[in-house]
């Protein structure tokens, strides 16, 4: 159990924010009952469950957090493999791809940075090709190898960087919230950025950014969202991170911008596949991969930004 007062305050603040947001939704439903709020209500209810799980993960032990993130990787990869076209010949190949999840998180739990950082992009990359060759089916080989690797990179490699944040040693240059504080900072800002861009877009959105990939995304939403994220990044940084003011601003912009790019990348894939959501596991949000879409980009970028400047 992590009882760091700053972290507890951060998690408490998040619950406060959720409570206020739920009250707003409740008030909206009461004041304008003529519209259909089913989706908004489902979304809000799902946030309670997700923030509940996130709080448990942050405040329980580090191993609980690693298992939690490994499950997120597994569920996201399962959604991905279930929705992309795969070849019958590659069934056992996918089995090996799944096995990479426990291995990757095992390296992390042992604080083995060298293995964590090359296992998927080097060893699994090569092993998957090797295993595919055994099946001796050349039709669609390149597409299959590429799509399988893309799934492993986003769902396992990217997400697992969040787990490695928890392993970073406490350098003592900032409050003692350590990796859990960094993880809170990163995940909160990424998800808040999603919500911020959505709200800004709903209120002021006029000019589309990427009309073909994602028609609901507007310049107004993007700029407003990034600005809000930068503001919160600067406000929270002194408590949860070792960042100076400049680095906090840079991190906010990084999360805001690349959260957007992660989001629209997954949108592009969904459009390519002709689907709206990867699954219906989280009511109002879609699947796990639909929820962590922005994180697949922000997690590794934030991690390496941290790693470059502070470790």
């Amino acid at each position: 159990m992590n009882d760091n007062p700053v972290l507890l305050a951060a998690v408490g603040g998040l619950w406060g924010l959720l409570f206020v947001a739920s009250l707003l939704v409740f008030a909206l439903v009461r004041l304008k009952p003529d519209r259909d709020y089913a989706e908004l209500i489902a979304r809000t209810q799902s946030w309670w469950v997700m923030i509940g799980a996130f709080s448990v993960m942050l405040l329980a032990s580090r191993n609980v957090a690693l298992i939690f993130l490994a499950i997120v990787s597994f569920l996201a990869l399962k959604e991905y493999f279930s929705r992309i076209p795969t070849r019958r010949a590659d069934r056992r190949v996918l089995f090996w791809a799944y096995l990479a999840i426990p291995l990757q998180y095992y390296w992390i739990s042992g604080n083995w940075y060298g293995m964590f950082i090359i296992f998927i992009p080097v060893y699994m990359f090569l092993f998957i090709a090797l295993r595919m060759i055994i099946a001796q089916k050349t039709d669609g080989f390149l597409q299959a190898a590429a799509t399988i690797h893309w799934g492993m990179m986003t769902c396992i490699f990217s997400i697992s960087h969040a787990a490695y944040l928890l392993m970073l040693p406490d350098t003592g240059t900032w409050g003692a919230t350590g990796g859990a504080g960094l993880l809170f900072y990163l995940v909160f800002l990424t998800q808040f950025n999603d919500v911020g861009q959505y709200v800004w877009g709903k209120m002021f959105g006029r000019h589309k950014v990427l009309p073909i990939v994602s028609p609901n995304k507007t310049w107004e939403g993007l700029v407003g969202g990034v600005a809000t994220t930068v503001l919160f990044a600067a406000l929270l940084a002194p408590y949860l991170t070792p960042f100076n003011f400049t680095h906090a601003i840079m991190t906010g912009a990084l999360i805001g911008l690349f959260g957007f790019i992660g989001d629209v990348s997954i949108s592009a894939i969904k459009r390519d596949l002709g689907i709206k959501d990867f699954s219906s596991l989280i009511p109002g949000h879609g699947g796990v991969l639909d929820r962590v879409d922005s994180l697949t980009f922000t997690v590794p970028l934030f991690f390496h930004f941290m790693h470059y400047f502070y470790y």
């Binding site: 399962k78 959604e79 493999f81 279930s82 795969t86 069934r91 056992r92 089995f95 699954s279």
Partner: peptide, 18 residues
């Protein structure tokens, strides 16, 4: 749909699929 991918006839390795 999907269960024939997860565990087809004449196979014993279960591969997770929705």
């Amino acid at each position: 749909y999907g269960l024939g991918k997860a565990l087809p006839k004449n196979d014993f390795v279960l591969v997770p699929f929705f």
